[in-house]
């Protein structure tokens, strides 16, 4: 079997296994797995609008996937992408509300910069604690998610509150900040913000392949002790990894704030930060793989969004179950080793 096919086989089988298990669980409610699958595909790809929404969900997933992958490359598990993204989105909205006079091409750039900075700050804290104090980054990043939610809630309700809105959302950003959606996808808010994800994906690939810092970071992830003996500053690489990871995750709220709602809405994320874990693992931490995995999970997110209407009992929560099962399938090393040794 050729190299590329062999590399694609495992993720493909893992997705198939995860989907089969998930649909099996969903079918316990009495709906047939076939009906659920059809509803899923139809909702994700049924029309130009549907496909546009799939792309809209995929764009943040590319970024949160890259964020998680950045941590994994350095041997760290960043499950704080959700909070980093939330504060990034809040910062983008804050700039858009606070500096309404900035002219057009500069304005969205400023918002993107603010989002990166906010996310990077939120990532640097667990990075620093890990590097200097040896604190468990998984627990710290999860706690940081809860604190980010509190901070976002405070700023939304007390500082930038939309005056006449019943919802927990800030007022709108100035018009110069908006990136307008492409007309092709009807009303789906897919815009040039999608390209931002692709640019960052390319950028991280270059960072890992062409820079010393990227090389050192991967060396630390591959074998911390060896990296230390080779004279690499392990703590610095860990701090750098989680800071970049936070910054990239911070950008994931940009499509929502600058193209979809034009403001920060609490609870806008269906869990992009956690889905990034599945995206990074399935995409094997590589830019192309992450883009493909983000498309898949974007389609799953859109596909499950209206399951309540199309089936008797299945709800959109199926999306999270499918993600979990795909992660379990991908990471079940023993299974794949057994297949390789005995079958291939």
């Amino acid at each position: 079997m050729s190299g590329i096919l062999k590399r694609l086989l495992q993720p493909f089988l893992a997705v198939a296994l995860g989907l089969a298990l998930g649909l099996g669980i969903a079918a316990l409610g009495g709906d047939s797995a076939w009906v659920i699958l059809k509803a899923l595909l139809n909702s994700a790809f049924g029309s130009r609008y549907d496909f546009g929404m799939t792309l809209f969900y995929s764009a943040p997933l590319v970024l949160t996937g890259l964020s998680v992958a950045m941590g994994l490359e350095a041997g760290l598990f960043n499950i704080g992408a959700e909070g980093q993204m939330g504060l990034g989105a809040l910062a983008a909205a804050a700039v858009g509300i606070g500096f309404p006079g900035v002219p057009w091409p500069l304005a969205p750039a400023l918002a993107v910069f603010a989002a990166f900075l906010a996310g990077a700050t939120w990532g640097a804290i667990p990075g620093w604690l890990r590097a200097k104090r040896g604190s468990h980054e998984v627990i710290i990043t999860i706690m940081m998610n809860f604190i980010a939610a509190g901070v976002a809630s405070y700023f939304t309700l007390y500082v930038f509150k939309a005056p006449h809105s019943q919802n927990s959302e800030t007022s709108s950003v100035a018009a110069a900040y908006l990136i307008h959606p492409f007309a092709f996808f009807m009303d789906a808010p897919v815009s040039a913000a999608l390209l931002l994800s692709l640019v960052i994906a390319g950028g991280t690939a270059l960072f890992f392949r062409r820079t010393v810092a990227g090389y050192e970071l991967r060396a630390v992830g591959a074998n911390e002790m060896a990296a230390r003996f080779a004279g690499i500053d392990v703590g610095r690489s860990q701090l750098l990894a989680l800071t970049f990871a936070g910054g990239i995750a911070g950008l994931a709220g940009i499509p929502e704030v600058l193209s979809a709602s034009g403001r920060f809405r609490m609870g806008f994320s269906p869990g992009y930060g956690f889905m990034g874990i599945a995206v990074a693992l399935l995409g094997r931490r590589r830019a192309m793989g992450i883009i493909a995995a983000a498309l898949l999970f974007g389609a799953l997110q859109k596909g499950t969004a209206y399951l309540e209407l199309d089936t008797q009992h299945v709800t959109r929560d199926l999306s999270q179950i499918l993600q979990a099962l795909v992660i379990l399938s991908v990471s079940a090393d023993g299974l794949w080793r057994w297949l390789k040794n005995d079958r291939l």
Binding site: F77, T315, D317, S319, Q323, A324, I327, L328, R337
Partner: peptide, 30 residues
């Protein structure tokens, strides 16, 4: 997943958390 299938324990543990977060509302609906 982690003993015979040797999955990474932190990754699989996170997946179990996601599975629980998804399956409890789904069962609630059933």
């Amino acid at each position: 997943t982690v003993i015979p299938l040797r999955a990474n324990q932190v990754v699989a543990g996170t997946a179990i958390n996601m599975l629980a977060a998804g399956i409890t509302p789904l069962l609630g609906a059933y």
